[in-house]
Design a protein around this nucleic acid. Structure first.
Length: 425
DNA sequence: TCTGGGGTCCTAGGACCC
DNA sequence: TCTGGGGTCCTAGGACCC
């Protein structure tokens, strides 16, 4: 048999990417009907240094964009509803989205709160009779999914369907807002060729500028370059460009929940600071929050990273890997305090500090022969602290190291009232 | 108008071991 | 006196995504 025939005889995958439109803004409009049809901007307070996390299409029409400073959005669209965001509500809607997806296929991979890949390859017989033609059943499947999601949750979504993930992702972007776009097998090149290179996932402003220097502006331009040259210029990414520009890519959808790679917390000060005590107190606070999540997820971390950003935006990170993975705040804090003077070396004020825990593994630590009792005592202490915080909120309990923050800084994350208890060491 | 916070992945250099 | 090659781990920085 000719090779071409063998290739065609393998049934092609049908991969869908479902993406919720302007998710956070939409979530607010679902919960508060009076906001429907109005510009909505979700982000921080209009007075602080935060940026737009999400905005409704009404606000976008006025020039508001994601990642734009809130203050700028306020000038563009002063009559918008400016909201802080409610992640518990967004997570709940995201969970409902996932449930609806699972009613259509068991092979669902959540890639973020508002996006999921679905492998619909096996759904042909359910939909073939609903489609305008036998072959167009993926279109019918996606329309049914979109409609089902809207009826049960009120969520408006866009869906891209193609033979692989990257193409499904690109077509879902093209389908926005509220549309469905199916790329029939064989139609890949026709869709991709005229698209600007920025449509490729993984190509941001820097890479687009680099590609433009070689006069590569559309995906079709990319398809005209040899694999060897692309790899020489762009390394691993070059191979990726070569495949995607020809409409090829992975169609594997993995429903398994993966172990996270890192847990981090960071914050930008309302005003830049040079005060090392203040930095230390904030780092202690952020570390406590990160560690609480670490224990809550039943994980240990081996590496801790300290991150600083100077007022001129230069960003530094220094990390330390411990001899043993742990979930104890104090082990990480000692490392952070050791790294602080090695990281904060310029005589310039600091605008952001952060901590990151990585090298994560499942808890179920091997026993240390000596020092075991004190280790376990400390583990029980952290468990008790977590229990208090579970009941009364994170800031019901703080260590004295972080206490002086209360007077000067109001973290936006949860109600920051006076602590019920204060741990001195 | 100054530029968030949570992540993932890639690259590149150096240490260290065999 | 000059100088292997491969593999792994750690560290720092940066691009990108939502």
């Amino acid at each position: 048999l000719p090779r071409e025939f063998l290739f065609r005889s393998i049934p092609l995958a049908v991969i869908a990417l479902l993406d919720l439109d302007a998710f956070f803004a939409q979530a607010e409009q679902i919960r508060r009907p009076e906001l429907r049809g109005r510009p909505v901007v979700v982000g921080g307070r209009t007075t602080d240094r935060s940026v737009v996390a999400s905005s409704s299409y009404e606000a976008r029409a006025r020039g508001v964009k994601t990642a734009m400073p809130i203050a700028q959005a306020l000038r563009l669209c002063p009559d918008a509803a400016f909201l802080r965001g409610d992640f518990a509500w967004y997570a709940e809607l995201s969970r409902r989205m996932h449930e609806v997806c699972l009613e259509h296929t068991p092979i669902v991979e959540k890639v973020s709160l508002d996006e999921a890949f679905l492998d619909l390859s096996g759904c042909r017989r359910h939909y073939r009779r609903e489609a305008p033609s036998d072959a167009a059943w993926p279109l019918a499947a996606a329309c049914r999914l979109q409609q089902h999601l809207h009826e049960t949750t009120g969520l408006v979504s866009s869906i891209g369907i193609a033979t692989n993930r990257v193409l499904a992702k690109i077509s879902s972007e093209l389908a926005k807002p509220g549309g469905v776009l199916w790329v029939p097998p064989g139609g890949e090149q026709a869709l991709l060729s005229p698209l600007p290179i920025r449509h490729l996932p993984g190509v941001g402003p820097k890479t687009a500028a680099r590609l433009k220097r070689y006069n590569l502006q559309t995906i079709g331009d990319l398809a005209g370059v040899s694999r060897e040259l692309l790899v020489e210029l762009f390394g691993e990414a070059g191979q990726h460009f070569y495949d995607v520009s020809r409409g090829r890519g992975s169609s594997k959808v993995s429903p398994e929940v993966r172990l996270p790679k890192s847990i981090s917390r960071e914050t930008t000060f309302e005003h830049d600071t040079c005060d090392r005590h203040r930095l230390a107190a904030m780092l202690s606070y952020l570390l406590q929050r990160a560690c609480r999540q670490l224990r809550g997820d039943n994980l240990l971390a081996a590496t801790v990273t300290l991150k600083l950003r100077y007022s001129d935006f230069q960003t530094m990170a220094r990390s330390r890997t411990l001899a043993e993975p742990t979930d104890h705040d104090d082990a990480f804090y000692a490392a952070i305090m050791d790294l602080l003077p090695k990281t904060y070396t310029r005589r310039v004020a600091i605008r952001l500090v952060g901590v990151c825990l990585s090298g994560l593994s499942r808890a179920g630590r091997q026993l240390l022969l000596f020092d075991e009792t004190s280790y376990q005592r400390r583990s029980r202490l952290y468990a008790s602290m977590d229990a208090v915080r579970e009941r009364f909120g994170f800031s019901s309990l703080v260590t004295s190291r972080a206490l002086d923050l209360l007077a000067t800084h109001k973290p936006s994350h949860d109600g920051f009232e006076l602590p019920v208890a204060c741990l001195s060491r």
